[in-house]
Design a binder for these strands. Sequence first.
DNA 1: GTCTATAAGGAGATAGAC
DNA 2: GTCTATCTCCTTATAGAC
Lengths: 205, 205
Amino acid sequence: MARIPAEQRRHALVQAALAVIYRDGVAAATTRTVVAEAGMSLASFHYVFDSRDELIREVIAAIVEDVEVAASLSLEPGRDIAETVRNGLRAYMLHVQADPMREVMLNELMNHALRDPELAHLPQIQYRIYRRTAATLLELAAAVSGVRWNRPMDEMAHLFATFTDGLSLTWLGDRDDEAAERTIELAALAVSVFAVPIEQPADPV
Amino acid sequence: MARIPAEQRRHALVQAALAVIYRDGVAAATTRTVVAEAGMSLASFHYVFDSRDELIREVIAAIVEDVEVAASLSLEPGRDIAETVRNGLRAYMLHVQADPMREVMLNELMNHALRDPELAHLPQIQYRIYRRTAATLLELAAAVSGVRWNRPMDEMAHLFATFTDGLSLTWLGDRDDEAAERTIELAALAVSVFAVPIEQPADPV
DNA sequence: GTCTATAAGGAGATAGAC
DNA sequence: GTCTATCTCCTTATAGAC
């Protein structure tokens, strides 16, 4: 076969591993299934990776770097904050429902990381990213709806990220579309307690 | 070795499997490690189980039946509803923090179930139990704090269960005790919008 | 650098003695 | 019913030709 730079080969193997894990789970991602997916020989694998463990670690690191959270708010001015938040949560939910196995895969890889002392720090990085994404979205939502949050932004972001986490995990378990929709509705209403009109510097709750 | 009834042997093997999975993950629960944990021979395993798959299925079914959710509310009358809910969420959080690997194990087993068509229905049962537990707790909390919920109980329960799910998963990932505490505080306050004093049949929001 | 061939061991499952 | 011994397959990883 062609002479491929080591870095490129590593990348191709990581991508192949992701495809296998997505399809059949982490356990199914043996060196053999991965090289088959990548169209390589087993020896080529060991030329660029010392071991299967090293591959899995690179897979998890790649996931952490690339987590693109479904972060499209339908930002229509004129909507009140509850409506804007609800629309954002709905968009997130649709993203999960459109590709459930992606979430299962992410959960599997996180569990794997949590059991490997060498990887245990990676989920923390990932959750930092989640939180920052949440913060950005919450700021946008507030701006569009003409409110501000009367709680520290990082607290609001953590609340929001926690809730979306629960939303996807619970739906993966119960597959109850309507319950998810109603829960989103309630959460959007509830979280609006922390929004105050941007004019008056109130201090409610 | 002693002559053990098949049912009892199956049970012992399921318990041994749980111990192994708790310690080292589902992947580590091979027939050999499990029988070693149970102090049996490999043949004894296959005398009562057709295959490893059957064992893992029984393990997951056992988990679903036995899920005892940490459901102790510190129910002190006189506390307002936000405080009561917050105390309940704190108790749940303490339970998770006291034994993180138990949660990791539950996540692993759920992921496993989600990938096995024969087991895919089990998480739904489990989540039905979660919801019913949540409903019971929310009713108790309301009673103790002299309020009622102005939303359907099953909606409130699903919201509550979703949030606790997110709480544990997020904490497993970020291990941020203080953020969890603040998120609990905010959630308890937010969810209180749906509580109305028990005297007046109001209809807010 | 990339390949085929193979070593070395772990896995699930069974045979057959007791 | 329970055991030891074994079959067969699959795994990770390496050797050595090209």
